[in-house]
Nucleic acid binder design. Structure first.
Lengths: 249, 249
DNA sequence: CGCAACATTGAGGGCCCTCAAGAGGTGTGG
DNA sequence: CCACACCTCTTGAGGGCCCTCAATGTTGCG
């Protein structure tokens, strides 16, 4: 049928149901943190100052990193591995609202304003985290205004992303959201490149606000209409303009 | 039936269909800007520095304030009046994604990061705006780190609000969203106070991601079940705990 | 009064969720 | 090596939520 390549094993085979519960004491871990990837271009002195505050930690696959309502005394970034933020429902697992691949901010806004995490977060692989305690960070930013502006920019980007997702969720149907997502995924790639899905399909569906069943049906529909070719976790865009049309942009 | 008081006229009788198009040159308008309401506690010197950058403008009811994709050279706040941000659909009007009552930020993140507005904005009454050109603002914040932190906080609050809305939209049905909205509206009020809806019901519905018809039906349903009492634009909560239960929190 | 905009109410239907069953892949233990 | 457990995705059947379309009632204004 739509042969691309033999299907590959799934991206991150989720560990046995995450055992919520006690936070095992994580080992300290000296490391060179890639601040520019998180905050943009940075003065060397600023990077060193952040390093001085930084507290890096390891987490094992399947571990709960934090939960909604937990005290959030530090801004947290993901330096290595994969993690999902969303809503933990007992018996149903974590409904992912966003899946993060390092390097990325895991908790950027929550600690800043009300000191609470606003979602549950789960390690989907072994992860390496870095935490910046917010009070010392505030003090640092009060001395280094250019660094403060980098955080402003990062937060503004976050607002933009959330705004766009909210807009899509309110005004587009499931098919359009999927088409838009595929377009976004293949945006900065060669036209006919093979795209490898980096997350479980159920997580993709969850982030798009639909069920895995609906995602599967829509994938088949797009495939039958000749817009994409799918095989397991590999995907190729066959008709980019048709996809954009469907996406309603 | 559920008598509270005679219904009052609607909040903001929307002007004749907004004439998109040319931006009439708005008059300058000297004014004391209430920065603390927008940014939190501020040093007097910082407030004066902002005043020096501020460019206040008047807008008439029904005027388009900006459109999606427009260049956004300045951060904009609403100082007086009412405005709606959302999606302008030719022939269908503006689907409001958020309705703002002064004082509030109208465009806080967009100018910061990509210099584009991410939504359409419409004046729902006569409005008074204040614009802070982003480049001079950056320069100011680079000199006044405490002021930069105030912007960081404002952006972090914005992220929190968007995050919460996204979560509700993804996981709650229309009834739960309405119940949650009513709870939020009556949060900081005496228990049995009469609540006056400050926006058109179609805008409330739009912000909650539902149609006006669905909102109307749900209002009637809540009213028939004795949870609230509605009369026109007045609303009273009769069973707060029942509402919270319905809201799923 | 006539007109315009809004809200309400009803009828009908479509999108997408829920539930269930089956296929394919992986790791484990006998 | 095979059986088994367990996870994933897929596919189908059925139904509910909510949207669309249309008609009616109300309010405010010229």
């Amino acid at each position: 049928m739509n042969a691309i390549a033999p299907p590959l094993p799934r991206p991150v085979p989720l560990a046995p149901p995450a055992s919520l519960g006690s936070t095992e004491a994580p080992p300290r871990h000296p490391l060179q943190v890639p601040w520019p990837a998180l905050l943009g271009p940075l003065a060397a002195a600023d990077a060193q100052a952040l390093d001085a505050l930084a507290d890096t930690r390891l987490g094992t696959e399947g571990r709960m990193l934090f939960s909604r309502g937990d005290a959030a005394p530090a801004v947290v970034a993901l330096l290595d591995g994969q993690a999902a933020c969303g809503w933990w429902q007992p018996g149903r697992g974590l409904a992912a609202e966003r899946v993060l691949h390092a390097p990325a901010w895991l908790a950027l806004a929550g600690p800043w304003v009300d000191g609470r995490h606003s979602s549950d977060a789960l390690a989907q692989s072994a992860v390496l985290l870095v935490a910046l305690p917010v009070e010392p960070l505030r003090a640092l930013l009060a001395r280094q205004p250019l660094l403060a502006l980098r955080f402003t920019d990062a937060l503004a980007r976050e607002v933009g992303r959330l705004d766009a997702r909210l807009h899509e969720l309110m005004h587009k149907d499931a098919g359009a959201r999927l088409a838009a997502w595929i377009c976004a995924q293949s945006a900065d790639r060669p036209p006919a490149a093979v795209l490898r899905l980096a997350e479980r399909k159920r997580d993709i569906a969850s982030q798009l606000g639909m069920t895995p069943e609906t995602l599967s049906r829509l994938m088949r529909s797009l495939s039958e209409r000749g817009l994409i070719a799918v095989s397991g976790y590999q995907l190729r865009v066959l008709d980019a303009s048709g996809l954009r049309l469907l996406a309603g942009a």
